[in-house]
Deep mutational scan, measured.
Amino acid sequence: RQGFVPAAYVKKLDSGTGKELVLALYDYQEKSPREVTMKKGDILTLLNSTNKDWWKVEVN
């Protein structure tokens, strides 16, 4: 499932696989259909980080 999360809630990881991955630093509950819920410690695939406030991710 793809959607947006606050950029301040995730940290980029060095995956070494060519995929950009991020680590969820905090729990986040989606507040609109365009967002996704994540739990602290989740590893997500980063799809787009051009917006400084909201990053598009895919929940694996």
Results as ranks from 00 to 15, higher is better:
R1M: 07
R1L: 07
R1S: 06
R1K: 12
R1N: 06
G3P: 01
G3N: 01
G3Y: 04
F4P: 00
F4T: 03
F4R: 03
P6H: 02
P6Q: 02
P6R: 04
A7Y: 02
A8D: 11
A8R: 15
Y9L: 15
K12N: 06
K12A: 08
K12G: 05
K12T: 07
K12Y: 09
L13E: 04
D14G: 15
D14S: 12
S15D: 13
G16T: 15
G16Y: 12
G16P: 15
T17V: 13
G18W: 08
G18C: 14
G18L: 10
K19D: 09
E20H: 13
E20W: 10
E20V: 15
E20F: 09
L21N: 05
L21G: 03
L21I: 09
V22K: 00
V22M: 04
L23F: 07
L23H: 04
L23T: 07
L25K: 06
Y26S: 09
Y26P: 00
D27M: 03
Y28I: 01
Y28D: 00
Q29K: 14
Q29D: 15
Q29S: 11
Q29G: 07
E30V: 06
E30M: 12
K31M: 11
S32R: 08
P33G: 08
P33H: 11
P33C: 12
E35K: 04
E35D: 05
E35C: 06
V36T: 05
T37F: 04
M38F: 08
K39R: 12
K39G: 05
G41N: 06
G41R: 02
G41W: 05
D42S: 06
D42T: 06
I43K: 05
I43T: 06
I43D: 00
I43G: 01
I43R: 05
L44Y: 10
T45L: 15
T45D: 06
L46V: 06
L46S: 01
L47F: 02
N48T: 08
S49V: 07
T50H: 10
T50V: 09
N51T: 06
N51H: 11
K52T: 11
K52E: 10
K52F: 08
K52N: 12
K52R: 12
W54L: 03
W55V: 05
K56G: 05
K56A: 08
K56P: 02
K56V: 14
V57G: 00
V57I: 07
V59D: 06
V59C: 10
V59W: 08
V59L: 13
V59F: 09
N60T: 13
N60Y: 12
